[in-house]
Amino acid sequence: MIASLFDLTLCLLILAAAGAAVFGRAAFMAVVFFIVYGILIAIAWLRLGAIDVALAEAAIGAGLTGVLLLAALARITRRIDAPEPSTGPDRTTLATALASLVIASAIAFAFLTLPEPQGLQERVAENLADAGAENPVTAVLLNFRGWDTLLESIVLLAALLGIWTLARDEAWGGRAGPRHVTRPGGVLAQFGRVLPPIGLLVGIYLVWAGSKQPGGAFQGGTVLAAVWIVTIMAGLMQAPRVADRALRAALVIGPVIFLALAVAGVVAGAFLVFPPVHAGWLILAVEAVLTLSIAVTLAMLVFGPPEEEEKP
């Protein structure tokens, strides 16, 4: 009963935040509502028994996406201030609202009429012993559906390449993003010194714990990326040059090793196998390098393309 009350309240808050993010007049307000929305959704995942997803949502949805949006907004509004076209409730918006309502109702109907669930809980549990990870979600991510995860780690790189493509030609090779300046010894700089050790610890813990309990490469990698982002925003470090070989090696090392493992399976007449005997440490090793690549890639996604002209 009380649980339902909690769920109902949370759903209403989620809808309110999403509604404000969609309908809100000012773009900044919409972005703030979206950040809030991410926090609430992370809580919702806990109620759905999905702690791993909650971790990912807390780190990515509420954290990184918000930073990306705020940074983008600051850079766009600096350039444009022209009033944007009105989207008052004319006939098209009314039709859109109606169509959205119909589609949402159809989806809700489809959801309500779903047949008896036939999830894979049991099958995952049966094979968990051979999977090399006690956490079923990690077992699915790295082993049972490892090919998805491998491709996904490459999707991140594709996005980064896309972003780098947007650099101006003169700036190519230079440091990613603008150079952040802060007052030395100021609040931000102090904060940038205190946070990283803790964040580093938490990030590594999440990866390490991920094979037994909720956590894993993506969650840990996001935390590590966030730490790096804070350090750079606090002006304590500079973002690396996009032409830097070490940076590029760090970006690809995770996918490369994962791919190499996939090819090694050919010896056994298969593709992407973790032999049960070695699965435990292999998964941990793959996760470790993946975390490094994911952390570096995510941070570079936030920094953006190089902006300052490269000094010869």
């Binding site: 950040i35 926090i39 992370a42 806990l46 702690i51 909650a54 971790l55 807390a58 780190a59 509420a62 954290g63 990184l64 918000g66 930073v67 705020l70 904060f191 946070l195 803790i198 964040g199 938490v202 999440l206 714990a209 309990q213 909720p214 956590g215 969650q219 935390v223 966030a226 982002i229 804070v230």
Partner: peptide, 14 residues
């Protein structure tokens, strides 16, 4: 608690 930890850690980011 790990989720809370991550949320607290990243709260400052935004």
């Amino acid at each position: 608690l790990d989720v809370a930890l991550v949320l607290a850690l990243l709260a400052a980011l935004a």
